[in-house]
Simulated scan of single mutants.
Amino acid sequence: MIGLVRGEVVVRRPDHVVVLAGGVGYRLAVSGETLRHVPAAGQETTLFAHLILRDDAITLYGFAAEEERDLFLLLLGVQGVGPKVALAVLSGGPPRELLRAIAAGDAARFQAVPGIGKRTAERIIVELREKVGAVTDEPSITITRADDPRGIARDGLLGLGYTAAEVDELLAAADGETAEQLIASALRGSRR
């Protein structure tokens, strides 16, 4: 996988840049926030990258900071949020501000993004609020509850399409020590 691209900026457009590195021009889709940090054509830049391979396309995404790439990956984990919508969200401001909006439950901030309605904005808040730790002065995303079986089970049930309220109700009655046991118990309880 391509994790970083360093080279000369050849093309700089509102939605992408082309960076010449090692004789190859890499086209990277970028957010408006990253574009602010990309210098003019002819100058050197370094972008963190993420490659997405699909049946119909291979797309490389570029980010000015690792924190922005990490937030992009978290956004992709939200149901209904694809790469284009995730880039649109990232164009809404620096990652630190977006993390604060998630922590504060500011769904209106995300509804202002083209392509995001009320449900998707609320889903972003619900699904990411617990994954994103407290926002500190350090420029990093802290993922919490990585080893918490209830948190993993909750994320799994949300991924299956249950609402947050349904998931909380199902897990309240679920028994088990591992995430798999909790999910199985919750699903058995939902059939009653």
Score class of each variant (00 low, 15 high):
Thr34Trp: 12
Ile58Arg: 14
Leu47Asn: 04
Ala86Ser: 12
Gly80Glu: 00
Leu73Phe: 09
His50Thr: 14
Asp70Ser: 12
Arg36Tyr: 01
Leu51Arg: 13
Ser91Trp: 07
Glu97Phe: 14
Thr34Tyr: 03
Leu28Asp: 00
Ala40Asn: 04
Leu90Thr: 07
Asp70His: 15
Ser31Lys: 05
Thr46Ile: 10
Glu44Pro: 01
Asp56Arg: 11
Leu53Ser: 08
His50Val: 12
Ala64Ile: 04
Thr45Met: 04
Leu71Val: 08
Gln43Trp: 03
Leu51Glu: 12
Ala41Lys: 08
Thr34His: 03
Val38Pro: 11
Ala88Gly: 14
Gly80Pro: 01
Leu98His: 09
Arg96Ser: 04
Pro95His: 01
Ala49Glu: 04
Leu53Arg: 12
Ser31Asp: 01
Leu60Asp: 06
Arg96Cys: 00
Arg54His: 10
Leu74Cys: 13
Phe63Thr: 06
Gly62Pro: 04
Glu97Ala: 15
Leu53Pro: 03
Arg96Tyr: 02
Ala57Asn: 11
Gly62Ser: 07
His50Ser: 15
Phe48Glu: 13
Pro39Tyr: 02
Gln43Gly: 02
Glu68Val: 02
Pro94Ile: 06
Thr34Gly: 02
Gln79Arg: 10
Leu28Tyr: 00
Ala65Met: 09
Leu28Ile: 06
Leu74Tyr: 12
Leu51Ile: 09
Leu28Asn: 01
Val78His: 04
Leu47Lys: 12
Pro94Asn: 08
Pro94Phe: 03
Leu35Pro: 09
Phe63Ile: 09
Pro39Gly: 05
Pro94Ala: 11
Arg69His: 09
Glu33Thr: 14
Leu74Gln: 15
Leu87Asn: 09
Ala29His: 15
Thr46Phe: 11
Gly62Ala: 03
Asp56Cys: 05
Ser31Ile: 00
Glu33Arg: 11
Glu68Thr: 08
Glu67Lys: 08
Glu68Asn: 09
Thr59Ile: 15
Gln79Ile: 09
Val38Leu: 00
Gly42His: 00
Tyr61Arg: 11
Leu60Lys: 09
Ala41Gln: 05
Ala57Met: 08
Leu35Ile: 00
Arg36Met: 15
Val89Trp: 10
Ala41Pro: 14
Glu66Gly: 15
Leu60Thr: 11
Gly82Asn: 04
Ile58Met: 11
Leu60Gly: 05
Phe72Lys: 02
Thr59Tyr: 05
Gly92Asn: 11
Gly92Tyr: 05
Glu44Gly: 02
Thr59Arg: 12
Leu98Cys: 08
Gly62Gln: 04
Val89Cys: 12
Val81Lys: 04
Arg69Cys: 06
Leu47Gln: 03
Val89Arg: 14
Thr46Glu: 15
Lys84Trp: 03
Glu97Gly: 09
Leu51Tyr: 10
Glu67Cys: 11
Tyr61Gln: 05
Val78Ile: 08
Leu35Asn: 07
Arg36Ser: 07
Ala57Cys: 05
Asp70Val: 13
Ala40Thr: 11
Phe63Gly: 03
Gln43Thr: 11
Leu74Trp: 15
Asp56Ala: 10
Asp55Ala: 15
Val38Lys: 01
Gly32Phe: 05
Leu71Cys: 07
Gly82Asp: 05
Phe72Asn: 01
Val38Thr: 06
Leu73Thr: 13
